[in-house]
């Protein structure tokens, strides 16, 4: 039994190292000076930390703009996806209506569409409508990508609020709108916040569509991708860390909801 436990810990530690060490290394690389990154072998311990690489990265053309664009696109996507998706999620959770199953199938199907399939024709449509190379274009694409998941997860969130609560509110004199606002929404709020985070991260990470739909108004990943081939290693490492940081914050905040969001609702 004791040996068994030891083996268990050993396996867990090994896997943790596989997932953790690369994160450590990219942080180490991003916080090394340019000069020490040119050395070989690279120091494996944080002996001479420096903000030089990361500040150079942040100072180079397009990075701050990319950050702001990513932020803009991410927040707008969250708002738009919630405004459109929450009512649909509520309808799925509470109503049995004709067309419910086809609608769900439609959502699943749209989620199976590769981003490229949409992006290229969309770029053409946006060129004609003057939306090309704007953050709005990217927001629309990201909302379309996030929406099926937003609807399905919010519907799971609303299913978690007992129907009897809503009925109780109505019996005690609340209109349907009031019952929703006073009783359902407050209980669904943590779940909806989780959906919002999920949507933001999806938008933050999406690179291909953002690259195809913009030329100058790049989001951060799109900017990093398009400048990849002609930038020094130090720049790429700093870019890698810059892209990852929100992810770590996201997972830290969302740990409690992860299983429900990715796990249960996907089944």
């Amino acid at each position: 039994m004791r040996r068994h436990r030891f083996g268990l810990q050993l396996a867990c530690v090994a896997i943790t190292l596989f997932f953790g060490v690369p994160l450590y290394l990219i942080a180490l690389a991003a916080f090394s000076s340019r000069e020490s990154l040119d050395r070989f072998p690279l120091p494996l311990l944080p002996t001479d930390l420096s903000a030089e690489t990361i500040t150079t990265f942040l100072g180079s053309t397009g990075v701050v703009g990319g950050y702001l664009n990513s932020l803009m696109v991410g927040l707008s996507t969250v708002v738009l996806a919630l405004v459109i998706g929450v009512p649909a999620g509520y309808a799925l959770a509470r109503h049995a209506f004709r067309g419910r199953d086809p609608y769900q199938l439609f959502l699943l199907l749209t989620r199976a569409l590769p981003i490229v399939v949409l992006s290229v024709p969309l770029a053409r449509i946006f060129l004609q409508t003057g939306l090309y190379d704007t953050t709005y274009a990217v927001t629309l694409l990201h909302t379309a990508l996030a929406l099926p998941t937003t609807v399905l997860i919010t519907s799971a969130v609303f299913v978690g609020v007992p129907r009897e609560h809503e009925e109780a509110a109505q019996v005690f004199g609340a209109s349907p709108a009031r019952a929703f606002a006073r009783v359902v929404l407050p209980q669904a709020l943590p779940g909806i916040a989780a959906v919002a985070m999920f949507t933001f991260v999806l938008s933050w990470n999406e690179v291909l569509g953002a690259t195809i739909l913009t030329l100058n108004q790049r989001t951060l990943p799109a900017h990093v991708l398009t400048t990849l081939s002609d930038s020094p290693l130090a720049y790429r490492f700093a870019g890698g860390l810059a892209l990852i940081l929100p992810a770590i914050v996201f997972v830290a905040v969302m740990r409690r909801y992860l299983l429900n969001m990715w796990g249960t609702t996907l089944r």
């Binding site: 997932f19 991260v201 933050w204 990470n205 999406e206 690179v207 990943p221 990093v224 991708l225 890698g240 892209l243 990852i244 929100p246 992810a247 770590i248 996201f250 997972v251 992860l258 990715w262």
Partner: peptide, 8 residues
């Protein structure tokens, strides 16, 4: 890694 993009 759930929240890390393939580029990153």
């Amino acid at each position: 890694p759930l929240a890390i993009s393939d580029l990153a």
